[in-house]
Design a protein around this nucleic acid. Structure first.
Length: 479
RNA sequence: GGUCCCAUCGUCUAAUGGUUAGGACAUCACCCUUUCACGGUGGCAAUAUGGGUUCGAGUCCCGUUGGGAUCACCA
């Protein structure tokens, strides 16, 4: 049997990290076995629909290379792949389920209207009313429906005892049928709830493995009841633990936690994000940590999925992002870095800048703060020239810059190597330590305590003209 | 509250019932060095708790504690 998984997000906004991880596991389960990965949009709640959300889903999946075999945009033999376009299908199966005895028509007023009747517990009150509909003979209920009376289809749970099912991650799970509430399957607007739509679609689309958050564990027996009523075989369940912000809170957009696109905007590479979240609840069984999607596909195994929730650790993602940045070719890095250079108006050697930046940054947006001194010298304090380790102070700095300036004016081969040799020679000729020359120059060129690259690298990046100008300015500032 | 689930360094995790409980991030120290990084070497650091089973328990069983989930015409 061909393995088929589906990613079934609802278009409610941004791509959450937890959702993306679920999608990844679904993709990997299918692709590691040569199966199909299906994209389905679950938009049965019109109130929550957010314009443009499906586009974000498409773009994100494509950006990380998780291409789907069937979906709303590319079609497929099990379409349509948008639930709102499958309304008629659900209605048909809902009525069928009532006929089969797995559900009943419920004519109760909306919950809001029944709640404020008295001080009674709304859940209890609703249960009482529900019982009324539950006991209406099928023929009579059907007649009322046909007459046009508003209704919902509500699941019937009349089994007693324990429901058992197996989960790939959690093993055997047992839940008492008494715990199951008779939820609405088909809403009064004619659209199904998730509880119904996902069962119908997963069956009709021949989905073999259902991967979803473990918050669905307790309602899984309800879905199995529906499969059973129709005489269908339930899929293999893979419930995954939540991705946490800290020990007690899930990662969520509502708390302002970063979404995929937020992270990208902060300078994280999509490949690094994907790699990191793959390891949040899964491991390959050895010590490897850096994986491309292709490599993950090769070694993924769902039985190495973890049961316990994992805290999203931005620090480790940042480290991993740094690894990805360093693994880029110089050209690739330069291309990614260029957009961050737009504010640098000075005519400098940008490829040399990229070369010093690449091993130094862990997220692309660090480029901004690393390069701020290039457009204009910051208003720095003279005390910066005092450095014990380098054995410099303002006097030595002044002397150093005075020695350096005329020599640099005569340098024709403006390369890092040559500049470095030249400055070292100045130090040697004047019986000074290298640092006593190099450190003041670096401060004069940057006005910062730490910089990407040393004195001569900065000089090379800035170019001769700007370098000389900055040294002159520094001398002026030093009096 | 009922029910279900979870529990190894600060974090992510490894460990056919037998290891000095391993790795990675973070952190600290040192080395490298043209500041800072990168890189290298080393250090600190964990089986929540109480019982059992067993020659032997992080691993199996029970209790406790802690945490999470669920109980919508949301998914």
């Amino acid at each position: 049997m061909k393995i088929r998984t589906r990613f079934a997000p609802s278009p409610t906004g941004y791509m959450h990290i937890g959702n993306l991880r679920t999608a990844l596991y679904e993709y990997l389960i299918a692709k590691s076995a040569g199966g199909d990965f299906v994209l389905r949009i679950e938009d049965t709640d019109q109130k929550r629909y957010v314009e443009g959300a499906t586009d974000i889903i498409y773009k994100t999946l494509k950006r990380v290379g998780m291409n789907w075999d069937e979906g709303p945009d590319i079609g497929g033999k099990y379409g349509p792949y948008v639930q709102s376009e499958r309304k008629a299908i659900y209605a048909e199966y809902a009525h069928k389920l009532v006929e089969l005895g797995g559900a009943y028509y419920c004519f109760c007023a909306h919950k809001e209207e029944t709640e404020d009747e008295d001080d009674e517990n709304p859940v209890v009150a609703h249960a009482k009313i529900k019982d009324v509909c539950r006991n209406i003979p099928y023929a009579e209920a059907k007649k009322r429906v046909e007459k046009g009376e508003p209704f919902v289809v509500r699941q019937k749970v009349d089994k007693k005892g324990k429901s058992m099912f197996h989960d790939v991650v959690y093993g055997d799970i047992e839940i008492d049928y008494d715990e199951l509430d008779e939820g609405v399957l088909l809403k009064s607007d004619g659209l199904p709830t998730y509880n119904f739509a996902n069962v119908i679609d997963d069956h009709l689309m021949e989905i073999t493995h259902v991967v979803r958050g473990n918050e669905y564990i307790s309602s899984t027996p309800k879905y199995n009841l529906i499969y059973e009523a129709f005489g269908w075989t339930p899929p293999i369940y893979v419930h995954v633990p939540a991705v946490m912000k800290d020990a007690q809170h899930k990662l969520s957009k509502r708390n302002g936690d970063a979404s995929f696109q937020d992270l990208v905007a902060k300078g994280y590479l999509p490949e690094a994000i994907l790699n990191y979240i793959a390891l949040l609840g899964w491991n390959p069984g050895d010590d490897r940590e850096i994986f491309s999607l292709q490599e993950l596909t090769k070694c993924f195994s769902s039985n190495r999925l973890n049961k316990s929730p994992a805290i999203f650790d931005i620090t480790k993602l940042t480290w991993m992002n740094g690894c990805y940045i360093r693994n880029l070719s110089a050209d690739e890095f330069h291309k990614l870095a260029e957009p961050y250079y737009v504010n640098i108006k000075t005519a400098i050697n940008f490829s040399a800048l990229s070369a010093v930046l690449q091993p130094r940054i862990e997220t692309l947006n660090q480029i901004i703060s690393e390069t701020d001194f290039l457009s204009a010298m910051p208003d720095y304090s003279l005390s910066l020239y005092e450095n014990k380790k380098m054995k410099t102070d303002t006097e030595i700095a002044k002397k150093a810059l005075q020695l350096v300036l005329p020599v640099l004016c005569d340098v024709s081969e403006w390369t890092n190597e040559n500049l470095f040799e030249t400055l070292k020679q100045i130090a040697a000729d004047n019986e000074m330590k290298n640092g006593q020359i190099l450190y003041p120059v670096r401060i004069a060129l940057s006005g910062k305590e730490t910089t990407p690259g040393g004195a001569t690298e900065l000089a090379y990046i800035l170019g001769k003209e700007e370098t000389l100008k900055r040294i002159k300015d520094a001398l002026h500032k030093l009096g």
